[in-house]
């Protein structure tokens, strides 16, 4: 555990000096990786217990759109707008989660219900085009460099914000991992009846982790929106975003602290790398290769990349000790 903490700290230190090292495009990628790594980590809070949500795109969308809408129409600062977006995401999580958990909608059925949820948010954003700009997207009113509007043309500001968001997500993950709630959730994921029989309030535990995951995801969406200064229903909500979250988190590894982060690092650099490499030739080839690599990852490394590496290292350690 302390070794994990140390490596997280080392990563953070490395992250602190990185922005000075490269061009603006590099920093832009890094900010995106940190924001999405936080969202994937938030998803893994639930995902690691087998509560596989295909609806987290909805929380990203709500988190991103609410502060932007409140800012443009009412001049309300994101300092209030972001908590409002998180509150709405929590409300959505409870409205979907409560009946699901009450009626024991689990596994594939839970995945399907949540899949519908992410599409509902996307369609709502598109349908309310008078207000949200629909498929054309939505641009928050620019305010220059402003703490009040939480807008900064300089990327370094958002780099620090994204870094803090990421550290927050990691601490939440650690907090859950170290508590007895983790064991209760493991028990629930194996056998809800047996868990209830020893006094665990299954409904409450599941709702709690869902709300936590949704809130953190919405915060990630909000920071993403503030940074990009342009929201599009397709890029912050809907099935595509939900699938991106699920695949990246699983590919990186949902059972390890840094798994989702590795997932973000890998998928985002891969998408960008393939996009730059292929450019405008072979349209679609980049996405095909990206998809194929993800499928291979998930089939051959069900523990994720970090989980597989850790297992390989654990297997080698006793051998090395024996050789001494």
């Amino acid at each position: 555990m302390s070794r994990l903490g140390a490596s997280a700290f080392a990563l953070a230190a490395l992250a602190a000096v990185l922005p000075a090292a490269g061009p603006a495009y590099f920093l832009h990628l890094l900010i995106q990786i940190l924001i999405w790594a936080s969202v994937y980590t938030a998803w893994a809070l639930m995902g690691r217990f087998g509560f596989v949500s295909f609806g987290h795109g909805a929380f990203v969308g709500v988190g991103a759109y609410v502060p932007a809408l409140l800012w443009n129409y009412f001049g309300l600062t994101p300092w209030v707008g972001i908590p409002a977006g998180i509150a709405l995401a929590i409300l959505v999580a409870v409205v979907i989660g409560y009946p699901c958990f009450r009626l024991r909608v689990v596994g594939h059925y839970f995945a399907l219900v949540t899949l519908a949820l992410s599409q509902v948010v996307l369609l709502t954003l598109v349908a309310a085009r008078e207000i949200t700009g629909g498929s054309l997207g939505f641009t928050p009113k620019a305010a220059g460099h402003s703490w009040y509007a939480l807008q900064f043309p300089e990327k370094t500001y958002f780099y620090v914000i994204a870094l803090m968001l990421w550290l927050l997500a990691l601490s939440v993950w650690r907090w859950i991992d170290g508590g007895i709630n983790r064991e209760a959730l493991e028990a629930i994921s194996e056998d809800e009846d047996a868990a209830a029989a020893i006094g665990i309030d299954v409904l409450r535990e599941k709702l709690r982790i869902t709300v936590l995951s949704a809130a953190l995801t919405a915060l990630g969406g909000a920071i993403y929106g503030q940074y990009m200064m342009y929201l599009n229903p397709e890029s912050v909500s809907g099935i595509a975003v939900s699938l991106q979250i699920v695949f990246a988190a699983i590919a990186g590894g949902v059972y390890s602290l840094l798994g989702p982060t590795v997932g973000a690092l890998l998928t985002i650099s891969l998408t960008e790398g393939l996009r730059v490499w292929f450019g405008v030739t072979f349209i679609g080839a980049a996405n095909t290769i990206y998809g194929a690599l993800l499928v291979l990852c998930i089939i051959f490394m069900p523990q994720g990349i970090v989980g597989t590496l850790r297992r390989a290292m654990a297997a080698r350690a006793p051998k090395a000790a024996a050789a001494d």
């Binding site: 064991e183 209760a184 028990a187 194996e190 056998d191 009846d193 029989a197 020893i198």
Partner: peptide, 26 residues
Amino acid sequence: ARTFQIPRPFHKLSLLENVALAAFYG
């Protein structure tokens, strides 16, 4: 408290954790 006809242990947890969880939440 009840037992189940067919035992339903939590395999992801150790023996001690299985029982400690019951003590904690019971």
